[in-house]
């Protein structure tokens, strides 16, 4: 069983929901990647989504854009990110790591080469924001061969046809974008999210994670009651941005532990 499947199986037995934090690799510095990942694990994270920085992050809001710019200032490349995952893996054999990024750095490296290197580094899943199922066939084949899950996004505007299309292409879990907007935006309508998660679950047997707009324990808990996993990104990146470098790991740990406790509270 893959690490992602094993994680969701364990959580289901425990009747708990997955907490999936996101941050951008290389922000603020390549040396902070592994310490932040370890802090996330200590705080009770179940899966880590690691952002691969890109110069033109079209689907991201200003917070994650700035994180990408900071990471690129140090020249953090896709190969560097894979190296950091390998470093993390040496001390942690169980926590799944999902790379989240844009198509161009992967295409530039070559999709087969990427899939091979990602598997070797210990990557468990890949989410390419601008590869809808229609366009990502070559990568999908390479990832399947490397036994890496491919996570896809779904949106409030996704038609039943598109949900079915993603159902055929996705593995690991699917990521429901809870609102119309970019990362870090606006307010959540919980009833709307619940209705959409129910709709998605009619087509998809995989766990459904919900992200975009989750900023505190109350919302994380509410989303946990609706979905299988809670994804928190911009709020964590903000914490990294506003912390002095020596405090980042501790501050992120505290923040994520707060979310975890809220989700697990009876």
């Amino acid at each position: 069983m893959s690490r992602i499947a094993a994680t969701f199986a364990r959580l289901q037995q425990q009747k708990r929901k997955a907490l999936i934090p996101f941050f951008t690799a290389g922000d603020p510095h390549p040396d902070t990647v592994v310490p932040i990942m370890q802090a996330l694990v200590r705080a009770g994270s179940d899966i880590i989504e690691l952002g691969v920085p890109f110069s033109d992050p079209m689907a991201d809001g200003p917070v994650i854009q700035r994180a990408s710019e900071r990471a690129l200032k140090h020249g953090t490349s896709l190969r560097d990110v894979l190296q950091k995952v390998a470093e993390f893996r040496r001390a942690d054999a169980t926590t799944p790591v999902v790379l989240m990024g844009y198509a161009n750095p992967i295409e530039h490296m070559g999709v087969s080469e990427f899939a091979r290197a990602a598997a070797a580094a210990g990557v468990d899943g890949v989410l390419v924001v601008d590869y809808p199922p229609e366009e990502g066939g070559e990568l999908a084949r390479a990832l399947r061969q490397a036994q890496i899950d491919e996570v896809f996004l779904l949106a409030p505007t996704s038609s039943a046809q598109r949900v079915a299309l993603v159902a055929r292409a996705a593995s690991g879990y699917v990521y429901y974008v809870s609102l119309k907007g970019v990362t870090g935006a606006g307010n959540l309508d919980l009833d709307d999210v619940a209705a959409n998660v129910t709709r998605i679950k009619q087509h998809i047997k995989l766990p459904v994670g919900v992200g975009f707009g989750i900023r505190d324990g109350v919302t994380a808990r509410a989303i946990g009651n609706i979905a299988d996993a809670v994804v928190v990104g911009s709020r964590i990146v903000q914490e990294i941005e506003s912390s002095a470098r020596e405090n980042i790991a501790a501050n992120v740990e505290k923040l994520v532990r707060g979310l975890r406790d809220a989700m697990d509270a009876a």
């Binding site: 689907a59 809808p132 598109r162």
Partner: peptide, 14 residues
Amino acid sequence: GGVFVAETLMAALE
């Protein structure tokens, strides 16, 4: 060419 965008834009493009 093609349609390389996030799922959030697919409906509008359709």
